[in-house]
């Protein structure tokens, strides 16, 4: 029934999680366990590719918040890329771009990791 999925892909600088479908209170645990899995495997440079994300609810946004502090303490980061404009609006309304790197393309996100650029709060 779940119309949500996460696909893993490894790049040199980061692990890419391509999310697809609707991320709401029911499907949020899937993304949560996916990020948990990466963290447990020591993959702390994560890129969430939201190209195929159709919908995100507040519970879905909560998943990013749940891990960001810990991942950053470990020296990694979660960067978000390729959001559709409607989805980006949801992130933007809440002020996510002030806290997360939200970029247009996966390559951009990868290059941020390659260059070791951490988000500057309030940037």
């Amino acid at each position: 029934m779940s119309n949500f999925s996460v696909a893993f892909r490894n790049a040199d600088a980061a692990t890419i999680l391509a999310v697809c479908g609707e991320l709401d209170a029911h499907t949020a645990p899937e993304l949560e366990s996916a990020i948990k899995k990466c963290r447990d495997e020591g993959k702390i440079n994560l890129i969430i590719n939201g190209h195929d994300l159709d919908y995100i609810s507040s519970a879905g946004l909560g998943v990013f918040m749940a891990f960001i502090e810990e991942i950053r303490t470990l020296g990694g980061d979660i960067k978000i890329c390729a959001l559709r404009s409607k989805i980006f609006d949801v992130f933007d309304l809440l002020g996510f771009p002030k806290i997360y790197h939200i970029v247009e393309t996966e390559e951009e996100a990868l290059s941020l990791f390659e260059r070791g650029i951490q988000p500057i709060p309030g940037d």
Binding site: M65, L93, L94, G95, F96, K98, I99, P121, G122
Partner: peptide, 19 residues
Amino acid sequence: LRSGGLGIGLDRGDLFGQT
């Protein structure tokens, strides 16, 4: 009217007030 401002709980430091 869309003014700047983070959601409550997103940042627990000074960023909230700054933005």
